[in-house]
Nucleic acid binder design. Structure first.
Lengths: 123, 123, 123, 123
DNA sequence: GTGGTCTAGACCACA
DNA sequence: GTGGTCTAGACCACA
């Protein structure tokens, strides 16, 4: 399901990371599933292999995926959520930013909550 | 109230933009209020005037502030929210990303809604 | 009829020049009519006298108005149009720019001609 | 075809913007065409890269060109004209100004329409 | 190699 | 004094 928009201002490697995480949450990718290799994925979505590699490395660092030597890359089986204070602060910061942006678009709390319900509905 | 963290990975000009928008929403800055001049603010927070200028220009483009020739820069009086489809899509994208991030931190919908309540409570 | 918008990005002194020229074309100001003094006008529209003065000086240079020592400033009686090649080039450049701008707004030649008719209709 | 006159009072970045827009309308630049990179153009016309960058950024904001990460800058393929009331007012204001200027040069409506025909003839 | 951000500093138009 | 434009040059993220 991996889709990447090279026009977007969002870095491609981040798009890949988010896309894979989303697929895992939606159950499209399940723990233990094999991911395409860097070269395969690079060919599939015609993106520079370095970019794919960067995304995979970051996902590995987050313990979302793991590389098994000679076998390939897999979705981790035993992911345990980790909250650090820093991540929490970050999340709040980002949420605040969105709320402010919404306010400037004339979107109040109720409307924003609707949007959130919508998104959860799709998972 | 303007604080800037030069070690943050977030561009300084964006920090300034967000900080000013937040101050407006919180009522710390009111419509018609004068902002410090580029040079003043530059001296206050020891950031290069060009960087301040960049932030002000972008805020002007968003119609959040306005420049009155030779008099200075002011918070706009008659801000009208504008929603374009593009902005809406963007907002949803960003919200989805946060929700995914939250999920990976073990924060479920209820906890996230609490966080949102908290943020609104501060405005 | 002189109106000035200090919010506009157009320099105030230019707004004054254009406004006076427009009034002359419309017949609101007639050849020989007395203009308010710099100080009077400055008080009337609460604009810095230096700015008024700059506008008057430029209008004088263009032979649109003339200063009669001790009596005041008047609309010239015997204005003769002067076309220099430079001015002509300038006019064409500006017109071209407008036409390009119109094009990018989806305004074609016919619609632009309508706009022009409209403007002439008001003179 | 990009030419820039550094002696002109018109800011260089605006000259670049207008020149590119003109080239697009004339068909010299077509949708999807690659523009020279900031550095290339900078070298070609010996203008500081920052100035080129400023022009490109503004053209991007207007959706005339788009940046594709790491690949370069391209003429947008799917430009849709947008008229806002503000832009329309602006256009009329500028046209009025030209008409007044023309009048003071002894150019009447018919002559002005000829000039306009001329310009459209070149596109 | 591509553009994005930032600094330091100069000069100018405008009010 | 106010912001606008431009240069020169550094460092960085991304592909």
């Amino acid at each position: 399901m991996l889709k990447v928009d090279s026009r977007s201002s969002k870095p491609i490697y981040k798009q890949i990371i988010e896309s894979i995480k989303e697929d895992i949450i939606k159950g499209i990718l399940k723990p233990g599933d094999k991911l395409p290799s860097v070269r395969e994925l690079s060919a599939m979505i015609t993106i520079n292999p370095n970019t794919i590699s960067k995304a995979y490395k970051e996902l590995e660092r987050m313990k979302t995926i793991e590389v098994i030597r000679g076998k390939g890359t897999f979705v981790c089986k035993d992911y345990k959520p980790v909250i650090t204070e820093e991540k929490m602060e970050n999340l709040k910061e980002n949420m605040k930013k969105i709320i402010i942006e919404a306010h400037y678009m004339g979107i109040n709390k109720d409307k924003l909550l609707n949007i959130i319900e919508d998104i959860y509905g799709k998972f």
